[in-house]
């Protein structure tokens, strides 16, 4: 049995670890709230644009933008969004697993994959296991801005325009609630026609300044960027939620460990007192 002193050092080291995990838990909780806020704020923009695009698609049935046309798929582009840092449970692992299943299915169908990674963990993972990464976003940190994403999204859109890729997907964690995050593969291109706005079928159209095609081009680019941005923000909320849960579990585990060790320590102390006593008693009896 370990001596009293040994156990005491162990307890104090676990206590200091627990302090760290507690602090991380609280930091993650407050960051999560902020991230959720940001997630909510980014929604109206995408919804408004979607409504306008839906209307445009109906007003101009004869004009189909290349972003809306299905092509035969030979090569696909994938944007993978991960967290920058670890210590967030199985969040990234689950995401990569989901991505890999999808990638493998394409591999089987002889479809090539071009990748674009956002976040350190995705960089590291796909660098280790291989994969054609054609673009990468910098450290986005806790306050991602749309500006950071323009470059990466543009690389993919240019490739789509040039016919290098025929479909574009976004892989990220969807925020369901604090306890649940679902890894999701979302199709960005070609844009899947929105059926919600069917009832908008009146006979009216916008006045366009300048040409409608040009306006539509700009709108679609912004729409896709905002979707990517939403993915990033949502993933960030997921990261903080997952970290909070993981750190809470770690703190709980630490308390359990401390309880057990405390018990062992008390027993060891009691045993040594008993032993000393019996030694004194037997010593006195011998005199």
């Amino acid at each position: 049995m370990a001596s009293g002193k040994e156990i005491r050092t162990k307890i104090s080291s676990i206590k200091s670890t627990q302090k760290i995990t507690r602090a991380m838990e609280m930091v993650a909780a407050s960051k999560m709230r902020k991230a959720q806020d940001r997630m909510r704020k980014s929604r109206p923009y995408a919804e408004k644009i979607r409504a306008v695009i839906g209307h445009l698609a109906h007003a101009h049935p004869e004009y189909k933008h290349s972003y809306m046309i299905q092509r035969e798929v030979k090569r696909v582009g994938v944007i993978v969004i991960s967290s920058d840092r670890g210590l967030c449970g199985g969040l990234n692992t689950n995401l990569f697993k989901k991505a890999l299943i999808t990638l493998k299915a394409w591999h089987k169908d002889n479809i090539q994959v071009d990748m674009c990674t956002i976040g350190n963990k995705a960089n590291g993972f796909f660098k280790r296991v291989g994969g054609r990464i054609i673009a990468q976003a910098p450290h986005l940190g806790d306050n991602p801005t749309l500006e950071d994403l323009i470059g990466t999204v543009k690389v993919m859109l240019d490739d789509y325009d040039d016919g290098k890729i025929d479909q574009l997907f976004l892989v990220f964690n969807r925020f369901v609630n604090t306890m649940t995050q679902t890894p999701t593969v979302q199709q960005l291109l070609p844009i899947i026609a929105d059926t919600e706005h069917q009832q908008l079928q009146h006979h009216w159209d916008y006045i366009y300044e300048p040409e409608s095609q040009e306006v539509l081009d700009q709108l679609l680019t912004r729409y896709l960027e905002s979707l990517a941005y939403q993915g990033v923000v949502e993933n960030l909320a997921c990261e903080q939620a997952a970290r909070m849960v993981a750190m809470k579990a770690a703190s709980d585990n630490a308390s359990n460990l401390i309880d057990e060790l405390q018990l062992a320590y008390n027993k060891a102390r009691q045993a040594s007192i008993t032993q000393e006593l019996s030694e004194i008693v037997s010593g006195a009896a011998a005199v």
């Binding site: 697993k97 990638l103 994969g131 323009i150 990466t152």
Partner: peptide, 30 residues
């Protein structure tokens, strides 16, 4: 310019370019 930058970062990352995904390795790691 932003697009170029994103590409360059990827190139830097993949200095030792390994284009095909090593599925066995990826799965083992996961």
């Amino acid at each position: 310019a932003a697009a170029m930058e994103a590409k360059q970062r990827a190139e830097k990352l993949l200095a030792d370019k390994q284009v095909a995904i090593d599925y066995a390795r990826a799965q083992a790691e996961l």
